[in-house]
Amino acid sequence: MPRNVLLQSSAKSNFFIVWSEVVKNLKFLLAYPIVFVFWAIFPIFWFIPFVLQGQAFVGGLQSPSFGEVAGTEEFIPFIILGAILNSYVLTSLYGMGESIRREAYRGTLDYILSSPCNKAFILIGKALSESFSSTLYAISQLAISILFFGMELTLGIIMPVIFIIILLILGLYGLALILAAASLRYKQAHDMAHALEYVFYVFSPVRYPVASLPLWGQIIGRLLPLTYALIAVRSLILLKQNLPAIYLEILALLIIDGIMILTGFYLFNWMEEKTKTSGTISHY
């Protein structure tokens, strides 16, 4: 095969790969409207018990002791933001791995992997569409929260919040690539995703501030991108701070993003090479 032809057209064709992957996944999204509605609404159901629990325990909407560790006494907006950002984690943990599993189950994975393009771009396409739908879900959840739970949002902080979310998503792409690499090789990668979900759930400040954990728990929490994203977003929305005030969180997110994405790409390409030689893919 004339190699240079491939190289010349690569930028264009890589873009095309990403694009067609996004289109394909959005079509899937439209084909399963109930799934769409599910993710747009259900995360709310998961935090309602926490809202009610809070009201029952403190008898109001503010908790002074919560304020001592969290910096804000208003626990309801605190957990709503936690839940919404956490759903980005859920979709990227399950979305990409799941979509690979699905391809493997359908039998299309072998064809995709035997195509001559760089598979990581297919994954980026998958991830992009994943983020796109996650954002739709987040907007819907936020709208419901503003309507029913008295969340407040000023227009001025929307851009900075989006900036933080993009930084979070980049880190999650890396994580998703690592999981995708694992699911190429191990049948039980799904369990790995679950285990990671647990780590995020317990050690990130989704429901309570990191400071309420024991020291070792705080250290684990400080390794997760979601922790910094949550602190940053809450500072912006609840404490009305501006971007320069949270430069440390932004820096931490950038570092984590870099590490995760590099590791992800490396692991994925390595695993793909390995599966090719050992031929364990269709073993599903």
Partner: peptide
């Protein structure tokens, strides 16, 4: 794992394990 957040969150809210309101 699912129980832990309920417990920690509850305890952070009341600053201990006793809730007057409850």
């Amino acid at each position: 794992i699912i129980l832990l957040p309920f417990l920690i969150y509850g305890m952070v809210l009341v600053g201990g394990r006793y809730s007057e309101n409850l």
